[in-house]
Design a protein around this nucleic acid. Structure first.
Lengths: 205, 205, 205, 205
DNA sequence: CTATAACCGAGACGGTACGTCGTGTCTTGAT
DNA sequence: ATCAAGACACGACGTACCGTCTCGGTTATAG
């Protein structure tokens, strides 16, 4: 993921040398996503994460300021391999590929969707967390998408004065709309094609 | 609000005659929205609601099963007068009016937006609450919107085989997208017109 | 019981005409002793008494100031028929009769003993209750005992300068000692005879 | 106190290493006796003990199962230094010394008497507590007393077939009788001498 | 090749909120 | 006016987590 040049833990305080135990870090992040998948974000507690990971609470609080920060890092790492915007030259196919991946990640796997919605909610009374979420998860993906569209614009595939932000909203809005309202009950891929087509129409030359 | 034919309290258990104190009910709902506006949904506690409302915790738990249920009812009542889909004959104008009202309610007033996002998150580990949210808040408004579009279809203003559900997603998706991602930083009404126009294009004959 | 000339409820406040329902009164007192027998004094609640008696809490609080007062009246009525000091002319036999009755009432029946010990404890932070307990339950019985001894003194059966108060303590002290320490495990009647004999020796001419 | 060979905390559950904070333990026991002295046993709450001791409720419940258990340990520690049966060779003097100490402890100081009577009452619906009270407080002192009498018996100071249990009851019964009935209004030392003399008479060769 | 300084597990600690229960007061309707 | 029914404000219950804080015990460089 090229737009994330600093993969080291962005929440570290003062303790942190490299003495940090990678073993513990992994156990914590894994336990976190597992618990989110099982119970949803809200009911997960730092206490439970520590117990499941075989780790002391102190170790968690040493490296992360809050449950949300742990979840954020866990989501970040888990999402990493999935992302990256494809570029085969065929814009419509690339958009479809990307949207399908997003839908699958967000709604198809409880590991992600249930964790994300709770994390977003926490964000509304925790500015550091909000900033982290924007920086680490959202903005890179938005940038990737806009970059792909911009490239298509330069290639003359879409109108030179197309509104890229509007296109992004038309594409991603309905996905999050479904995440919120239908709780993961995403209806088949056919509609996905409609979504993409309408977005493309908004960009047409 | 015609699509809400059952205005009686949906959370009644077994205690409930009409011995219920309307005074307490009002104080609780008001205190709840105030506290959500001040601190967001997550940090609000039943204890704090009770204290602010001058009411005992028991009284809250007697009539609602959880904080979420209180917030839901509070939002329901507060949103009630706002809603109802306009019907002036001019579809585009009506859509714009409605979307503006939604944006204002959801994003413009912290009383609503901050409460709603947390409520939705809670919904993901509480099926009763999820059902209530759908039934009380979401479905009636979706039904209103679809009904308005269906009427337009019968009037020949839009294509006879237009996909109304897709249109609803194109309209409302971006709004919730902004609620989640930008935390209420809604950019001006110009984009709203673009949104509506593209939705209309998806419905065009 | 001659020394209790006023059997009407001594705790009445201002409401009290004769409109009082005797039916409710009986149900309350019966339920109270039953519950004390089952669970002991402490765990019994006004709420439980009301429920068991088929009576509203208000009715209890209208006629008694506290749980303790209800228990006191219940004990008073229940103990009434038992008491009264026998006077057959044979002092030793009378003392034995009386002590046996006391032991049976206090320790042999959970209805009384368990209720009494808790009531006494309540007495230590409730002066009205303390006064009531002395007046209604203890003093009359102490007076009866002393009167019986005084009569024996006049009849020359015991020393003219015998210390009657000391005798009362030697007689009753061990009984309450057992109530407290052994929780009703009263050992046979043989010891009772020893107790009485030693008290009589303290009174001997 | 030789008859108390196991001074380690008798209420340890499963958490207990030595990580326990002695500072908190002391504060809790002190606060408990203070509050009992001020308000009596009944009105004292775990919440109040925690507040007065500057301790969290959890810390109390971690080490004791109930208010009664806390009071029991507090009484045990507070009574410890006082007790131990004197043995100067003069039985009558030793009995008087011991009885005076008991009376002073039980009735003369509200710290003890008020706490004890409520504790005993609780004992009647809590078997663990009853067992603890017998084991920790009562039996050791009874054993000490009986041992002193037994020694006197061996020394030929009292009858070889004297009933030691009866003597204990004649001595201690009246003391508890006064605790219950007169709420600490103990009348002077003269009567104490009478009590002891009559008990000795019951033991005379 | 120590030794010294961090991390680490474990978990006690002072708190806050939970959801429940009991208190004693109050209101409603019926008898 | 009493009564049953029961809602109400209040406050304590005993539990769960929070985030902070010792404790020993292991590591893993730095002397």
């Amino acid at each position: 993921m090229p737009s994330q040049p600093e993969p080291s833990p962005p929440e570290s305080r003062q303790p942190d040398p490299q003495r940090r135990s990678e073993r513990s870090r992994r156990a914590i992040l894994d336990a976190t996503l597992d618990l989110c998948a099982e119970h949803g974000y809200g009911p997960v507690t730092v206490e439970a994460i520590a117990a499941r990971a075989g780790v002391s609470k102190k170790t968690i609080y040493r490296w992360w300021p809050s449950k949300g920060a742990v979840v954020l890092e866990a989501l970040h790492e888990a999402a990493d391999p999935v992302s990256g915007f494809p570029d085969t030259g065929d814009l419509r196919a690339d958009l479809l590929t990307q949207m399908e991946a997003l839908l699958r990640g967000l709604l198809g796997s409880p590991r992600f969707g249930r964790a994300l919605i709770g994390l977003i909610a926490d964000t509304h009374h925790n500015v550091e967390l909000a900033h982290g979420l924007q920086t680490v998860l959202f903005q890179p993906r938005i940038d990737d998408g806009r970059a792909r569209l911009a490239k298509a614009r330069e290639a003359g595939q879409i109108s030179p004065d197309a509104d890229l932000d509007l296109a992004m909203e038309l594409l991603y809005g309905p996905v999050y709309y479904r995440l919120l309202l239908h709780q993961g009950d995403l209806h088949g891929g056919t509609e996905l094609e409609s979504l993409v087509d309408h977005a493309l129409r908004a960009l047409a030359p």
